[in-house]
Amino acid sequence: KVKIAGPGLGSGVRARVLQSFTVDSSKAGLAPLEVRVLGPRGLVEPVNVVDNGDGTHTVTYTPSQEGPYMVSVKYADEEIPRSPFKVKVL
Rank of each mutant, 00 (worst) to 15 (best):
K1S: 06
V2L: 05
V2T: 00
K3C: 11
K3L: 09
K3S: 13
I4T: 07
I4E: 03
I4W: 04
G6T: 04
G6F: 06
G6E: 06
P7Q: 08
G8R: 02
L9Y: 03
L9M: 05
G10R: 07
G12W: 10
G12K: 10
V13N: 04
V13Q: 06
V13C: 08
V13I: 08
R14V: 14
A15C: 12
A15M: 11
R16W: 08
R16G: 14
V17R: 08
V17E: 13
V17H: 07
L18F: 05
Q19F: 03
Q19H: 04
S20I: 09
S20D: 07
S20N: 13
F21H: 02
T22L: 10
T22P: 00
V23L: 05
V23D: 00
D24N: 05
S25E: 03
S25N: 05
S26N: 06
K27D: 14
K27Y: 07
K27M: 12
A28D: 04
G29A: 10
G29Y: 08
L30H: 15
L30F: 14
L30N: 15
L30M: 15
A31N: 06
A31P: 01
A31V: 03
A31C: 10
A31W: 06
L33E: 03
L33R: 01
L33N: 01
E34T: 15
E34P: 00
E34M: 11
V35D: 01
V35E: 00
R36P: 00
L38Q: 15
R41P: 05
L43P: 06
E45L: 09
E45G: 03
E45M: 07
P46H: 06
P46T: 10
P46E: 12
P46N: 14
V47I: 10
N48M: 13
N48K: 15
V50S: 14
D51P: 12
D51C: 12
G53D: 11
G53K: 12
D54A: 08
D54P: 04
D54G: 09
T56D: 04
T56R: 11
H57N: 07
T58D: 10
T58M: 10
T58E: 10
V59S: 01
V59D: 02
T60W: 10
T60V: 06
T60M: 09
Y61L: 00
Y61E: 01
Y61F: 05
Y61S: 02
T62Y: 08
T62N: 06
T62P: 02
P63H: 03
S64I: 09
S64T: 12
S64D: 08
G67P: 00
G67E: 01
G67T: 02
Y69N: 01
Y69A: 02
Y69H: 12
Y69K: 00
M70L: 14
M70V: 12
V71R: 00
S72P: 01
S72Y: 10
V73L: 04
K74N: 05
K74R: 11
A76V: 03
A76W: 05
D77S: 10
D77P: 00
E78Y: 06
E78S: 08
E78V: 14
E79I: 05
E79T: 05
E79F: 09
I80T: 04
R82W: 10
P84S: 02
F85P: 01
K86V: 12
K86H: 15
V87N: 02
K88M: 14
K88Q: 15
K88S: 15
K88F: 11
V89W: 02
V89D: 04
V89L: 02
L90E: 13
L90I: 12
